[in-house]
Amino acid sequence: MSRSGETEAKEPPASSEDGPPESLLAELRALPARYPQKRGALLPLLHALQAWRGHLTPADMKLAGELTGVAAADVFSVVTFYTMYRQRPVGRFPIGVCRNIACWVNGSEQIVSTVKAELGIAPGERTADGRFSLEEVECLGSCGTGPCLEIESRYFENLTPDKVRALIEKLRRDDRSPSEAILAAQREFPAAREARS
């Protein structure tokens, strides 16, 4: 694992049937030792597998189960409990717009409709080219800097429709790996305005 909690940029799998490459497997195998019981490594393992593939397949869940001594069905149960784990492919840039109170009071619905208009997709959908998908998410802890959207847990805050359009335009043209493109977009994004005493 890198410090970012994500795996280093690796070639995504060529086919949905491919298992993780040896370099990733080595990282995965090292995780259980961090915990008093192997099972503790289940969430990090699933994060790492999803960071690599983009979503989790049944084979990924079985692998995570084998490495942690957890029954496959139990891994499935865990995966379905947490909203961040995905069992279906999403866009290369999955956009999650916060719909909770502070963002909503400040116009998150306008943000959603801007994304919808720009991409021609509704929440829960993916663009035909597979580049973007959209969903509405619950509170991201960006209440003082809303409206907010996240792409693979990288935040874009104090949003306006114009900023959203510019962001989408940038990501449309960035062909680096998703994590590189998202971080680059975040660096170039106007800094969140933060009030304090």
């Binding site: 029954a71 069905a73 139990d74 499935f76 149960s77 379905t80 409990f81 947490y82 909203t83």
Partner: peptide
Amino acid sequence: SPSLVVAGR
């Protein structure tokens, strides 16, 4: 045979 689970939330 832990093969039945609760799925979802």
